[in-house]
Amino acid sequence: MSNNDAFTENLLVKVAWYYYKDNLTQTEISEILNLSRNKVVRLLDRARAENIVQFHIKGHGVNCLEIEYKLINVFNLPRAFVIPTPKDELSRSLSKAAAQYIENNINNNELLGFGWGEAVSRTIESLTIDPSIEVSMVTLTGGVNYYFHKRDYSLEGGVDKFKGGIHVIPAPFLASTEEMAKNMLSEPSVRNILDLASLSNHVVVGIGGISSASTIIKEEKMTLNELIYIKNQNAVGDILGQFYDAEGNILDLPHHHRLIGTHLNTLKKLNNVIGVAGSPQKVDAIFGALKGGYIDTLITDEETAVALIKKAEVHVK
């Protein structure tokens, strides 16, 4: 494929993604891409004619953008799925992409493991599973019952898709004391779910940044003062509530001894861990997660991917 052909297909896919996935108007797309509205209309027509737009948006431009190749090569990733950076609602767009990725890769009688956070819950919400197959769901941490009661992006009304069953850790995300956490983790009902989670065929996790806007703060799983303390210990991000530094090394924090869930060292051994994250504020967190080897498949947006590659190039120098 020539550079010109690749550019054209990339443009076709961007226009299709913005229109069909992000629900932008043709005028909004023309402003983002600096194209005339008529050009956008022609590109949409061509995308349909060339079967780039089907039940899912597909094609070299979405799944194999040049930026994906760079991201995979730079971080030695097995897979990456990079979407056009949306005008807004990045988390929602990434969740739709994660859902599409899972739909394209899930098989009958498989088990999906899920972490917690906004991107993860929205991925579940967006997920459409072929009714002819049985898929099961298991949680990787406690405290996920929280999403069954949220109204803006809950699992409510959307769990029937898991015909194979839903397995939820019957415990909070964070115990009040280390001793209580040890007692909970020794309970068969908790231990059995954690053991089951280790058998997941695909695992979806969010990657949290270190800021007052972090989900871990918004969902009151931690106070801002606690997060400031953790940041001062050189933390750059968290997965499943466990914090790590810029090289992906897990920090030794009292907070970690009160968590009820899958340890990051265990996560590294699981099949196809899918990290769903993006935004300038999360570049350091995603970079650390990639350096630590916690992610097998990264689902992010173009701007974040470019920032990650640039950071890696500086890191090497």
Rank of each mutant, 00 (worst) to 15 (best):
M1R: 06
M1G: 04
S2C: 03
S2Y: 05
N3K: 00
N3D: 06
A6H: 12
A6V: 09
E9G: 04
E9W: 07
L11E: 14
V13A: 04
V13I: 12
A16M: 13
Y19G: 10
K21I: 15
D22K: 05
D22H: 05
D22N: 07
I29V: 10
E31F: 05
L33A: 07
N34C: 07
N34W: 08
S36W: 08
R37Y: 07
R37C: 03
K39A: 15
V40P: 06
L43D: 01
D45R: 15
N51T: 02
I52P: 03
V53M: 09
V53T: 11
Q54L: 14
K58W: 12
K58F: 11
G59C: 08
H60W: 07
Y69A: 09
L71F: 13
I72E: 15
V82Y: 14
I83H: 14
P84S: 11
T85K: 01
D88T: 11
S91A: 03
L94W: 00
A97E: 04
A97K: 15
A98W: 02
A99H: 08
Q100F: 13
Y101M: 08
I102G: 10
E103L: 05
N108M: 06
N109K: 14
L111T: 03
L112V: 05
E118F: 07
E118K: 15
A119T: 13
S121Y: 09
E125M: 15
S126L: 05
T128Y: 11
I129N: 02
P131G: 10
S132T: 10
I133N: 06
V135E: 02
S136W: 02
V138Q: 00
T139R: 07
T141S: 02
V144W: 08
V144R: 01
V144Q: 01
H149W: 04
R151M: 03
Y153L: 14
L155A: 07
G158D: 04
D160G: 08
K161V: 01
K161N: 04
F162Y: 02
G164F: 04
G164K: 07
I166V: 12
A171N: 06
A171M: 14
F173S: 13
L174Y: 11
S176P: 11
N183D: 15
N183S: 15
S186G: 13
R191T: 13
I193H: 01
L194V: 12
L196R: 01
S200H: 02
H202I: 09
I207A: 03
G208E: 10
S211W: 03
S214G: 12
T215V: 00
I216N: 04
K218V: 01
E220P: 05
K221G: 11
L224C: 01
L224Q: 08
N225M: 06
E226I: 10
Y229L: 01
Y229H: 06
I230A: 02
K231Y: 00
A235R: 00
I239M: 08
G248W: 04
N249F: 09
N249V: 05
L253D: 03
H257I: 07
R258P: 13
R258M: 04
I260H: 13
G261W: 08
N265C: 02
T266I: 03
G275E: 01
G278N: 05
Q281W: 09
Q281V: 05
A285W: 14
A285K: 15
A285M: 13
A285E: 09
F287S: 05
A289P: 11
D296P: 06
D296Y: 12
T300C: 09
D301V: 08
T304H: 10
A305H: 09
K310F: 12
K310G: 04
A312K: 15
K317H: 13
